[in-house]
Design a protein around this nucleic acid. Structure first.
Length: 870
RNA sequence: GGGCAAUUAGCUCAGUUGGUUUAGAGCAUCGCCUUGACAGGGCGGGGGUCACAGGUUCGAAUCCUGUAUUGCCCA
């Protein structure tokens, strides 16, 4: 068969994925093998594949494929997340473009639009995962808002409510004026910005004409001021204790109060207290019994308290009000200063503190087992540097605000039969009615008297039970799948969602199943561009993974990503790495072409060089397999891949194949050929988790297997030998070969011209290999004074040359002199060490012996080099 | 502002409890070679006072202290 000289991944990859699908190659059902499970971090249902997914899912695929070959019943569960706020924002935006306002729609109509959108765009990302080779069990695909998952979420809500963890409370929350919803603490990102500090004068009521100056960054909220606070220790203001001031613009009188919280050195030392619009002011307000006046509407515009600025956006109002204060003489100055503001993780809007009635989960007790699980290594974090951060967060955990003023999500299963505190929590309306009748004692109550809570749940309230709910373990505890696949083994995700998701899954795992949800958490880094910037749509610096796949093949891109992604470290992505991956595919392809072209002759015997090569490579392979086990144990995937890369490119292609390769036109001995195929087969298996497509293709071409048998179902190769005899011999073989190659180069001797090699001592092991790779024509131990000396390691050789080229050139001389001076320096440094009595007396004897050996070796080298110069 | 981590070759990273030659790998770079697997190749080089300053030790990239820079988390 004639195989193309270049490997073209496009069609090969499509063909194999189709065959894998046709044969349900990744399907898993419980059997008597041990299970290995990964649940996918569900991407947003309407999302498209970006580089972060590419990295994350490639890692999962490597782990799953390897587990499959290691004999586990491996199951990778795919699925998507409804992504409440993100999806709702997208749908609102899309409707706006069509001229439809969300506020004009009923909940039902809006949800219909949202489902249409989901049906249209949903699942695209799962199809894209197939392009990268993801070996998911597609029959288990789940969605956080499908029937089973929805039922699970409601059950969990009811359960936690009945246990007393969930409560309703009027509290300060983070408010996103763009999405018009509350947010959890975790959904708020803090950013440093350049802001302005406005110095505003408030007239002192008891001293007309006298003013008190306060510094504020938010003049638009002054109408809601309910006090001016000063530190009781602040002597500058002690004469004002007990007095009042008048708010500019609305002339309302408010008291001057004393509170230790006020910093003496910030601004003027006077703080305007606006309980409705600042977390700290709220606390001060509660302490001093101040009224809470909210000047904003839910979309961040000013309301009726905003006087003439009623209806104006908060930022515009800030400028206008500052101007107005200035015009009326109340503004004394404006200063620039650095400030930190909270923004919504999803919409980017600046969040407002807002007092409102929300649903909360008390986290104190849930956090306890989750904290000790990580602390006691019952669940491993990889890398473990995140343990501290995790512990810190868990120790300072606050209650979780789970209600969102959104429609796309799981509607809260609470039913009101009266006012805000008259409700029941139930799985459905009928059950709610029973409970409501019980609660009221009114049997006349009907379904139409019940009003379901309008809000829906935080997205993470469905994903925190994901490892359980994908196996339907909430609805059917102890079902066969759950018992078999759960707890799962590895979770692969980004550190950014360690608290959002991972910590909460651990809590949910212990709370709802009494066991941990997974054994290990592998935290990937963030994919960045060459300049170190995070890849994002808005920067336009994120390559499209699918285009990369077109260019380099999925295998090439997978390798590119994995080559430089140690756990927990950011990945500075560089397309050149994919190029390296593509080149590697081509290298493998051409090794196959070489073997494919060999003619086998059963009647010939393997030569010494070939025999030596087979023994040597057998040891290299075994050694690599051992090293790989330890790499995987430590989740050092980049190192594992690099190890395989070097095994294939250097050991297999550059050394082994060159050693067993028959001369042009000559046949190869059958046992050498079979051994070579066996080695090739093994290295394809080892590489398969990383580069699934080319390995599948080559494996099938190497020894035809039926199309419905796949390399991923083969056993992972075992180390066959544990000796290191040939590995040790190789050290000197390599030294000698390199020395001879260098010699040829320096003397400008063509490879075709055979060398006459003289050996001083015994014939080294593996000399046949040296002979073959360096074209040594004759070997003898007859030592001639006229021979050109060669040094390989610490051993001496000679090459006999015609007089015409035997003399050393100036260039050679220069090289030798360089080496001599290096050795002299080296010897001096060791002599210094050895002449130090403290070293000789204190260091262990092996260390001292070693230094003596070093010096001996160096001296004999020096001797040879000097003899060459004469 | 508080906490955590990092700093080793042009780039990305290894370097296990301090001692295996004056620190390794891949990529990049430079030179030479290349009609019988592969220029998407082969061979051979060059390149680092291990961020800086102290300290502990016979011995420090490795341990300690401080400084600087960067990143992440939290407020």
């Amino acid at each position: 068969m004639k195989i193309a000289s270049k490997y073209l991944p496009g069609q090969v990859e499509k063909n194999w994925y189709q065959k894998w699908m046709d044969n349900n190659a990744f399907g898993s059902v419980p059997d008597n093998r041990e299970s290995y499970t990964i649940v996918i971090p569900p991407p947003n249902v309407t999302g498209v594949l970006h580089m972060g997914h590419m990295l994350n899912n490639t890692i999962q695929d490597v782990l799953v494929r390897r587990a499959r070959m290691k004999g586990f019943n491996a199951c990778w569960v795919p699925g998507t997340d409804h992504a409440s706020i993100a999806t709702e924002a997208k749908v609102v935006q899309k409707l706006r473009k069509e001229g439809i306002k969300k506020s004009d729609l009923t909940r039902e109509d809006f949800l219909k639009h949202a489902w249409d959108w989901t049906d249209k765009h949903g699942g695209i990302i799962l199809e894209q995962l197939k392009n990268i080779g993801a070996s998911c069990d597609w029959q288990r695909t789940a969605f956080t808002m499908d029937a089973k998952r929805t039922e699970s979420v409601l059950k969990v809500f009811v359960d936690l409510y009945e246990k007393g963890y969930i409560y309703r409370g009027q509290r300060m929350v983070h408010w996103d004026p763009e999405a018009k919803t509350s947010l959890s603490d975790e959904e708020v990102l803090h950013k440093d910005v350049d802001a302005e500090l406005f110095y505003v004068n408030y007239e002192i009521v008891e001293k007309p004409g006298k003013f008190l100056t306060i510094a504020t960054s938010r003049p638009e909220t002054i109408m809601a001021d309910r006090a001016i606070a000063i530190n009781p220790k602040d002597e500058r203001y002690s004469h004002l204790h007990g007095m009042n001031v008048r708010i500019p613009l609305n002339n309302i009188e408010i008291p001057i109060i004393l509170d230790e919280y006020v910093a003496l050195d910030f601004g003027t030392g006077c703080l305007k207290v606006t309980p409705a619009h600042d977390w700290n002011d709220y606390a001060i307000g509660e302490k001093h019994g101040l009224e809470v006046i909210d000047v904003f509407n839910e979309n961040g515009t000013l309301n009726k308290h905003g006087l003439e600025w009623n209806g104006l956006d908060r930022f515009e109002a800030r400028q206008k009000i500052a101007e107005s204060l200035n015009d009326s003489g109340f503004l004394s100055k404006v200063e620039k200063y650095k400030s930190s503001i909270g923004t919504s993780e999803r919409t980017g809007a600046v969040v407002e503190p807002r007092l409102s009635l929300q649903w909360w989960v008390n986290m104190q007790d849930l956090a306890k087992p989750a904290l000790s699980a990580i602390k006691d290594n019952e669940i491993r974090l990889i890398p473990d540097k995140f343990k501290n951060t995790y512990a810190h967060w868990m120790n300072n955990i606050k209650d979780w605000c789970i209600s969102r003023q959104l429609w796309w999500g799981h509607q809260i299963p609470a039913y009101f039969y009266g006012g805000d505190d008259q409700f029941v929590v139930a799985l459905g309306p009928e059950e709610a009615l029973v409970k409501a009748r019980e609660a009221t004692g009114n049997n006349q109550l009907s379904l139409s008297d019940l009003r379901r809570d309008e809000d829906c749940l935080d997205t993470w309230f469905s994903s925190w039970i994901w490892p359980i709910s994908v196996f339907d373990g909430i609805n059917n505890p102890n079902n066969k799948d759950l018992n078999y696949y759960y707890p799962t083994q590895d979770l692969v995700t980004a550190p950014e969602i360690l608290f959002f998701w991972v910590a909460r899954m651990i809590m949910a795992g212990y709370e709802f199943t009494n066991v941990k949800p997974f054994e290990n958490v592998y935290l990937t880094g963030i994919v960045r561009d060459k300049k170190g910037r995070k890849m994002s749509k808005s920067l336009g610096n994120s390559p499209d993974p699918l285009e990369l796949i077109n260019k380099y093949g999925a295998d090439g891109v997978r390798m590119g990503m994995l080559l430089s992604s140690p756990a927990g470290n950011d990945l500075p992505f560089d397309e050149d790495l994919c190029l390296q991956g593509r080149n590697f595919s081509n290298k493998i392809w051409n090794a196959l072409r070489l073997i494919d072209g060999w003619e086998v002759d059963e009647s010939i015997e393997a030569g010494d060089a070939e025999k030596w090569a087979i023994n040597w490579f057998g040891e290299v392979l075994s050694q690599t397999l051992e090293d790989l086990n330890s790499d995987f144990e430590k989740y050092r995937l980049s190192e594992a891949l690099m190890r395989i890369y070097k095994l294939i490119w250097n050991d297999f292609c550059s050394w082994y194949l060159e050693l067993v390769k028959p001369a042009y036109g000559e046949p190869i001995a059958k046992d050498v050929f079979d051994q070579t195929k066996y080695f090739f087969d093994s290295i394809m298996k080892i590489l398969h988790p990383f580069m699934p497509f080319i390995t599948e293709e080559v494996w099938h071409l190497l020894s035809p297997e039926p199309d419905n048998k796949f390399i991923n179902n083969e056993d992972w190769p075992n180390a066959r030998v544990n000796s290191r005899v040939y590995l040790e011999q190789f050290t000197h073989v390599e030294e000698l070969i390199t020395a001879l190659r260098t010699f040829r180069k320096e003397k400008n001797i063509a490879f075709k011209q055979g060398l006459d090699l003289r050996i001083k001592n015994d014939l080294p092991e593996g000399i046949a290999a040296v002979k073959k790779l360096t074209n040594v024509a004759s070997i003898s131990s007859e030592w001639l004074d006229t021979g050109s000396p060669i040094l390989a390691g610490a051993r001496e050789y000679q090459i006999i040359l015609d007089d015409s080229i035997a003399d050393i050139s100036d260039e050679e001389k220069l090289n030798i002199e360089k080496e001599v001076s290096y050795l002299l320096g080296f010897i001096a440094s060791i002599e210094k060490k050895l002449s130090n009595p403290n070293f000789v007396n204190n260091a262990p004897s092996q260390v001292v012996d070693l230094e003596n050996k070093k010096i001996g070796d160096a001296q004999s080298k020096l001797k040879v080099l000097k003899s060459r110069l004469n």
